[in-house]
Design a protein around this nucleic acid. Structure first.
Lengths: 209, 209
DNA sequence: CGGGGCCTTGATGCTGTTCAAATAGAGTGG
DNA sequence: CCACTCTATTTGAACAGCATCAAGGCCCCG
């Protein structure tokens, strides 16, 4: 599904003009699991997902990333998660350290901010996964996304399989829960990817959060 | 269960001599959920656990901490997790920033190291929680602890309820899985808290890791 | 010796998975 | 624009694994 990336180092970024800018098509891998983690990737435009393949073949989705996010921040020498583009994306590639760039300190600070943000989000994800029921997980997921993309209609960048692997459930369960939430009038789905929250309060209670 | 801590600022630490040293008895709270997160806590001696109470009353255990670990590293202004002493413990309390101490930079670096370590461990925890079956979770847990406390006989500092809340299971399931692992000869329990891994390879396969 | 945690074991029910099939949607070429 | 194909999503039915409820055992400590 994810193919090797086309390495067209071309345009220049207004933020870090010296950084290499890469383009990834939908489904392409930005970096691989177990690859050396000496680079970080700034998502200039597009959407991405990180995931980890377990030895038994199952997949745990780590997180979803949007414009401006730094991807590939990890605590070890090698990437525990891989990253893939969920839509056509532009990415700035930055060397983590040892860069001779004049604004190396700025990069350092950006990495520090991104690390704490990453920690915050992994903790939130952990609490979602720890939830008791599938409904709690899905409700929490919908709320979390609505908050991140403040707008009336929320557009999901990922498919049901990604949601399932993010929440530790199956696509069938996701689908069933969404159908039930809709029939109960808590949310409304315009199509599989676009939804609107009709009763934030009750959805929040359901999420137990 | 957890009582308020006795605030006996007394002894001096060889590492950060200017830091306040507190003593906590087993079960006492080191800091509370939603408390301002302007301090970090260095565990000089003892064992501690962080946990988060969900609105529905359930509890998610965050992590377990040992001598030398920094506790209370979080990305937000308030603690998402509380911390409790699992055994009588000594703790150095450090102000996160704005400290006028002569080695403020050293503290900063320690916090940076602890943050990346925290991220690494939360990610590992996430992958454990994402595991499919109870056996995979418990096997992973036993391996993780054995690795952390390299020794023949591993002594667990927590009870079954803590394990259950860490893994998102019930005490009964924990107990059943442990019994089965033992009857299959993968591990041996000397008593409820002390175990030895008899077949690391097969336990590792079971954990799918 | 008795009380109270903590842990283990048993029986039953429910939730989510698995397997299977139908439906909807997107993309392609006529 | 329509027919066709391929994939994603939804829905259904049966099953499995974990939770729940309940009881009994173990161990520490008074």
């Amino acid at each position: 599904m994810t193919t090797v990336a086309g390495m067209d180092v071309a345009a220049r970024s207004p933020v870090w003009p010296w950084a290499a800018r890469l383009h990834f098509r939908q489904g392409e891998a930005i970096f691989a699991q177990d690859e050396a983690a000496d680079m970080v990737y700034r998502l200039v435009h597009g959407v991405a997902r990180t995931s980890h393949i377990l030895p038994d073949g199952r997949r745990q989705v780590g997180d979803f990333y949007f414009e401006g996010d730094l991807i590939g921040i990890e605590a070890e020498a090698r990437h525990r998660f891989s990253a893939e583009a969920l839509a056509d994306s532009e990415v700035l590639v930055l060397r983590r350290e040892g860069s001779a760039a004049y604004d190396a300190r700025m990069v350092e600070r950006a990495i520090w901010r991104a690390t704490t943000e990453e920690l915050r989000r992994v903790q939130a994800h952990l609490l979602l996964l720890g939830r008791a029921t599938a409904s709690q997980k899905v409700a929490g997921f919908l709320l979390q996304f609505a908050e991140r993309l403040r707008s009336q209609v929320v557009v999901l960048p990922m498919n049901r399989q990604d949601m399932a692997d993010y929440l530790g459930l199956t696509v069938e369960t996701i689908s069933r829960v969404l159908s039930r939430l809709q029939s109960e009038g808590l949310v409304e789905f315009l199509d599989a990817r676009r939804y609107r929250i009709l009763r934030p309060r009750r959805l929040s209670e359901l999420a137990a959060d």
